[in-house]
Simulated scan of single mutants.
Amino acid sequence: MSELWARTLTWAEVDPSRHPFELDEDAAKALAALVAPLLPDAAPKAVKDRWWGSMDAFAEFLNPISELLVDRYGRWACGWNWSVGEGDTDGGVVDAWCCAGHTVTTADATAPLAVAGLLEWRDWIEDLAERFAALAPPSSSSESSSESSSPVDPWHWERACTRLVTVVADRTRAESGWYGHCEQVLGWFLAFNGIDEERARRIVETAVGGRFSSWVSPDVVAVDAVSSRFARTMDENR
Rank of each mutant, 00 (worst) to 15 (best):
V115L: 01
V115T: 01
A116P: 01
G117F: 01
G117I: 00
G117M: 08
L118S: 04
L119P: 01
L119R: 13
E120H: 08
E120T: 08
W121E: 02
W121I: 03
D123K: 13
D123M: 05
W124S: 07
W124P: 09
W124L: 03
I125K: 05
E126T: 01
E126Y: 05
D127F: 13
A129I: 01
A129L: 06
R131C: 04
R131K: 03
A133D: 14
A133N: 10
A134H: 13
A134T: 08
A136E: 10
P137K: 00
P137C: 08
P137I: 03
P137E: 03
P137Y: 07
P138H: 08
P138C: 02
P138M: 01
S139V: 15
S142V: 14
S142F: 11
S142I: 09
E143R: 13
E143L: 14
S144Q: 07
S144L: 09
S146M: 10
S146V: 01
S146A: 12
E147W: 14
E147R: 15
S148V: 09
S150Q: 15
P151F: 10
D153Q: 05
D153Y: 04
P154L: 03
W155N: 10
W155R: 14
H156A: 13
H156T: 11
H156D: 14
W157N: 03
W157C: 06
R159Q: 11
C161P: 06
C161K: 00
R163K: 14
R163C: 13
L164M: 02
V165T: 02
T166R: 12
T166C: 06
V167Y: 11
V167Q: 13
V167R: 11
V168C: 02
V168Y: 10
A169K: 08
R171T: 08
T172W: 01
T172C: 05
R173F: 12
R173P: 02
A174T: 04
A174K: 01
E175W: 12
S176Q: 15
